[in-house]
Design a protein around this nucleic acid. Sequence first.
DNA 1: GCCATAGTAAGCCATACGGATAACTGTTAT
DNA 2: ATAACAGTTATCCGTATGGCTTACTATGGC
Lengths: 118, 118
Amino acid sequence: MDNLSSHLDQVFGALGDPTRRAILARLGEGEASVGELARPFAMALPSLMKHIRVLEAGGLVESRKSGRVRTCRLKPAAMTRAERWLAGQRAVWEARLDRLEAYVNKIEKKPRKRARDG
Amino acid sequence: MDNLSSHLDQVFGALGDPTRRAILARLGEGEASVGELARPFAMALPSLMKHIRVLEAGGLVESRKSGRVRTCRLKPAAMTRAERWLAGQRAVWEARLDRLEAYVNKIEKKPRKRARDG
DNA sequence: GCCATAGTAAGCCATACGGATAACTGTTAT
DNA sequence: ATAACAGTTATCCGTATGGCTTACTATGGC
């Protein structure tokens, strides 16, 4: 669970940067080399490499090097886990809101003081 | 769109910290004051307040102060947007994987060289 | 072999982040 | 009126982050 926590740290942390989200969006169109990824970002290669490392550390991207070119591709599993965390959270507060609504309905049925407007 | 980007920065950035996710999880159980939130985290109040600010900046939490106690509650909308971004990304690469699968199927139908085991 | 290419490594810099403490403000309780 | 309480502001500290440049390595083309 602590392990999961640090994993979510990495995933959400990775997603919290616009450059990295753009990289992911780009990789959604298909695999790309580091150079291809770097070009549209007006960013030096080493800087972009750092982002790729972050994405790999979070398990969002994987890459293999053949010859002198490293090709990157998406690795959907990590993003799925992030989605699951969000969905789980949403489930919790939706349940909570349902309970609240039920409570409000209950107290609305015995209106001790008149509503302020009609 | 740039606006959306910076919003996602804030939301994902906020989610990228275990303390803040724990705060969200806790608020899922219901509203809580700053002090109540701080207690289980063994963290000084000002430090925790910073986290709350981050969560509020990302629109994940809202709070109102009555008397000397500030009460915090979840604000689900922001998380929903993050979920949507993730779901959108997933849609893209699932489409991509489908195309890839179709492609693989196509080339598998004309097996120029015999399978190694068969 | 030689040169261009693609990436990597190392180090620098400024800013942001996550935490702390100390001092202050405003509210409630006695 | 005073004391305790809940939160806030200000400041500080170490580390992480996001960017850069300047080498360096390894591959591919000629």
